[in-house]
């Protein structure tokens, strides 16, 4: 696995629309590199005969009946929103700065 470097972190921050200072980028690059290294050790024990897995429990086909359940009210839905208008979430102009 490739090392995580400062450019990778800057790229990810840009994708996530997070402003990061140079100092934060340096620190995060170091911290993430440690995490990636730790995870890398998994591939040392998992050989080619071990399929990639995304879930620790060997389950499949966990389905829900198609039956309507409880929903939030409009007020409840908007409770955590920083801003709202007209019963909807209000977000800043999307193309701003592009």
């Amino acid at each position: 696995m490739a090392e995580i470097n400062r450019d990778d972190v800057a790229h990810l921050a840009r994708l996530a629309h997070i402003d990061m200072t140079d100092e934060e980028l340096d620190r995060m690059a170091g911290e993430l590199a440690v995490i990636v290294d730790s995870i890398k050790s998994v591939s040392e024990v998992a050989g080619d005969d071990v399929p990639a897995t995304s879930h620790p429990i060997p389950l499949s086909n966990v389905f829900r009946e198609d039956v309507v359940g409880e929903t939030l009210s409009n007020e409840e839905a908007l409770l955590g929103a920083p801003d709202n208008a007209d019963g909807r979430f209000k977000v800043p102009a999307i193309l701003d700065g592009e």
């Binding site: 007209d86 209000k90 977000v91 102009a93 999307i94 193309l95």
Partner: peptide, 10 residues
């Protein structure tokens, strides 16, 4: 979307 001041989401 161009020139919009803000957007509302449902």
């Amino acid at each position: 979307i161009q020139g919009a001041e803000f957007s509302l989401v449902d």
